[in-house]
């Protein structure tokens, strides 16, 4: 099983070394690993990682808060639903990264543009998933709450909101990889640090080792976020 992986890694080491593949364009595994550690020691990788992580976390948090709040509005106020449903339906498939030039125009090339755009990206799946969960609450649950004396406020606070949290967490899980993509791509298209920026700079300077190191880090981040959200889901939804 691990045999195939070992074979691939072996080829990675041997082919560039033997010159079968241009070692400038495709450095051997050992060089890549060495670069990785070198960057780690120098702190450049860590620094860029922190920047990207910070932007991702803030964007996810903002997108989550906005998504859940807006979902509550969409479900309880008909005019809001009427006004925004066609817009969300129309703009959902569009890659939000196409908005980078607009956000840069509005907010400059600093953190703000990147985080806001990423937050918008997270907003969509979280809002939709939460709203779907809220709308999917069984009639019997509604009626039980009413016959127990719940007024409108109590209904939203004690029934609709808790019943929608699983939907919100599912939305968060979907949002995480999308948000990471937007943060990284926006870092790739402008200055301001972060792993995406490190990637483009390295590519301009033909530093392959650095590129691989960044990609490896991105992979770890992707896995890390997914695991974290799964854990968070278990912690928040103790009843599942």
């Amino acid at each position: 099983m691990a045999l195939a992986l070992a074979a691939v890694l072996a080829l990675w080491e041997l082919l560039p070394g033997a010159g079968a593949v241009n070692p400038v364009l495709f450095p051997p595994l050992s060089k890549v690993v060495a670069t990785f550690f070198e960057l780690m020691v120098k702190g450049a990788l860590a620094k860029a990682t922190v920047v990207t992580l910070y932007r991702t976390v803030v964007a996810l948090a903002a997108g989550f808060a906005a998504g859940v709040a807006f979902a509550a509005l969409m479900v309880s106020l008909r005019p809001v639903r009427w006004l925004f449903e066609p817009l969300f339906s129309l703009t959902y498939p569009m890659p939000k990264i196409a908005l980078i030039p607009i956000f840069v125009l509005w907010f400059g090339i600093g953190d703000m543009a990147k985080v806001l755009l990423a937050a918008l990206t997270a907003f969509y799946p979280i809002m939709l998933s939460t709203a779907a969960a809220a709308r999917g609450i069984r009639q019997s649950l509604h009626w039980s709450a009413q016959s127990l004396g719940a007024g409108r406020a109590a209904m939203i606070w004690k029934v609709v909101l808790p019943a929608s949290i699983p939907g919100a967490m599912t939305g968060l899980q979907v949002a995480a990889p999308l948000t990471i993509i937007v943060v990284v791509v926006s870092e790739m298209t402008s200055s301001g640090g972060g792993l995406g920026n490190m990637l483009t700079v390295a590519s301009r300077n033909f530093e392959m080792g650095v590129q691989f190191a960044v990609l490896f880090t991105l992979m770890l981040i992707g896995v890390g976020f997914d695991r974290l959200i799964v854990l968070a889901r278990k912690a928040v939804l103790r009843w599942e």
Binding site: R138, W143, S144, S147, L148, G149, G151, A163, I165, W239
Partner: peptide
Amino acid sequence: RERGIVFQDFALFDWRTAMQNVEFGLEC
């Protein structure tokens, strides 16, 4: 509140314990 109802699908609040479910009406 004067007319309570019990359903075939139990209609319990999954996110609340048994005790918390029973307390629901009392909270209201």
